[in-house]
Design a binder for these strands. Structure first.
Length: 491
RNA sequence: GGCGAGUUGGCGGAGUGGUUACGCAGCGGAUUGCAAAUCCGUGUACAGGGGUUCGAUUCCCCUACUCGCCUCCA
């Protein structure tokens, strides 16, 4: 069996991964707070841990992996946004959850096995808070319940910082009801116009951290294999989760492996609204950024081109590289022709690709290995090789068999290619062949060149082979522009 | 102030104690009506300073710079 090695934040080292139960590998990842469109930074952990999920499924079997990613649907940002929009909280969270799903689907991110909503687990949170109070790890004060950091000697171990350092250097919220400035909220009172649940401490709502402790325990147990999230969650969120879960369930180990993905940068700077380099996944997909339209596969590739533990800088070069790799994959998949493309089924993935992924999720390395295979000559691109490429692409979450350009490349490699699948492009292709034939007689290529330029501008690759012109739709191709060209040429 | 990551050729980005990936761009050639695509060939690098070593870009230390986290944040 493939040995997976992962960098464990707990130990700061790369360790061999062995699940508690190979028949039930369990992973928890912190999901989105649903109050707005997912920004690009939200997408990074979704993609990173999707690759890990796919790898775990490959190694342990699809039925033996349980992946839980929560939806935080109670939080002050949500309350504020709903109030600002003048809408009900439920309407806001339902809509934004739908957006999140649509955007992650576009990136080829598989749905987790469970996607618990915080508001469905308030009873479990209250029970856990009661247990913490009973064990002397938490205390109620003025309608709040606070976790007592002093009760957990290992506090700070995960993020590698001491309580003294934090008090000295960081701004810590001082509140009169706190016994210790580092104590954090498990439960807080709700005003009449805020969402709330009845509890032993009055009507209120949970603090941010308790939901992950309660939901991971409910769905994965007191001990599970992997907990993931963005590096910025390491402190305080994950540190607090560890404190809550380990104190509530001293018999369990909570998460054995902690994985953190590094942050996203845009042109070398942190993405932020004030810098004007902030954008959502949807902005990118719909071309509302300086990068023009970027497909879901290209965004995914842009992520995979960086190692998850390195900051990823999104810039024009990165987007271009992602586009080039996507085109490379599409052409490679078409090298055996249309019939083969339709028939291809995944086989066993390329060992070198699996090995790279198993080595701490080395996606840039895996892509490098894969690209070696993509570049094979047509003669070497046998059915078996293609099967292995397809299987490897599946592991990376990049099935491009259905892409328009893949089909167009396949036709290019057909022994007897028929007309172009797209009628407007078929017309343009025939017209271009006609114009070129006439131009070769007259020596005036102006018309042929104008059509060619129009096609390129519409996102269509023009390849002129001895057999004649071939038109290939690229990811960015604009069907409306092509239709206009076809109509003009007919007239 | 505390913690962490990083600094590789024009750009992006791997990697290794000795023989210097790869991609893009560039340059030369083949091909082309011209291009594109394709094919062949080709150059430049390891932030600075010490140390360990027969030998360091690769290990250790220091310095500089960059970035992130420490507050809601993926």
């Amino acid at each position: 069996m493939t040995e997976i090695r992962l960098t464990n934040t707990r130990t700061r080292t790369k360790e061999p991964f062995a699940p508690i139960d190979p028949d039930d590998v369990r992973m928890y990842v912190c999901g989105p707070t649903v109050y707005d469109r997912a920004h690009l930074g939200n997408a990074r952990p979704a993609v990173v841990f999707d690759v890990l999920y796919r790898l775990l499924r490959h190694v342990y079997g699809a039925g033996h992996v349980k992946y839980v990613r929560n939806i935080t649907d109670v939080e002050d940002k949500i309350i504020d946004r709903a109030r600002a929009n003048g809408e009900a909280i439920e309407d806001l969270t339902r809509r934004t959850t739908g957006w999140y799903h649509a955007d992650m689907d576009a990136l080829g991110v598989l749905r987790p096995n469970e996607e618990p909503h915080a508001t469905d687990y308030v009873a479990q949170m209250i029970a856990m808070i009661e247990a913490l109070i009973a064990r002397g790890c938490a205390y109620a004060a003025e309608g709040h319940v606070l976790f007592s950091v002093a009760s957990f000697p290992d506090y700070g171990a995960l993020s590698g910082r001491s309580v003294e350092d934090m008090i000295a250097g960081a701004r810590v919220e001082v509140a009169p009801y706190k016994r210790d400035p580092m104590d954090f909220v498990l439960w807080k009172p709700s005003a009449a116009d805020e969402p709330g649940w009845e509890s032993p401490w009055g009507r209120g709502r949970p603090g941010w951290h308790i939901e992950c402790s309660a939901m991971s325990e409910a769905l994965l147990g007191a001990s599970f294999d992997i907990h993931g999230g963005g590096a910025d969650l390491m402190f305080p969120h994950h540190e607090n989760e560890v404190a809550q879960s380990c104190c509530a369930h001293p018999e369990g180990s909570f998460a054995r492996f902690w994985l953190h993905n590094e942050m996203l940068l845009v042109e070398g700077r942190k993405m932020s609204k004030s810098l004007g380099n902030f954008f959502t996944v949807r902005d990118l997909l719909e071309g509302r950024t300086e990068f023009g339209p970027v497909t879901g596969e290209e965004i995914r590739l842009a992520f995979l081109l960086s190692h998850y533990r390195a900051p990823m800088d999104l810039n024009a070069t990165r987007v271009e590289t992602a586009r080039a790799v996507r085109a490379e994959i599409c052409e490679a998949l078409g090298k055996r022709g249309s019939a083969a493309l339709a028939a291809r089924a995944p086989g066993a993935p390329i060992e070198a690709v699996v090995a790279r992924l198993a080595d701490d999720l080395d996606t840039p390395g895996a892509l490098a290995e894969l690209r070696g295979w993509l570049g094979l000559k047509r003669k070497q691109m046998t059915g078996e090789v293609l099967d292995r490429i397809v299987a490897s692409l599946d592991l990376l979450g990049l099935d491009l068999r259905g892409a328009a350009s893949t089909g167009d490349y396949a036709r290019l490699y057909d022994a007897e290619p028929g007309a172009h699948a797209d009628p407007a492009l078929a017309a343009c292709e025939a017209r271009l062949a006609e114009l070129r034939a006439a131009a070769k007689q007259s020596g005036d290529f102006a018309e042929a060149d104008a059509l060619k330029a129009g096609l390129v501008a519409a996102g269509v690759e023009v390849r002129i082979l001895p057999a004649g012109p071939f038109l290939i739709r690229q990811a960015t191709h604009d069907p409306a522009a092509v239709a206009r060209l076809a109509a003009t040429e007919r007239a």
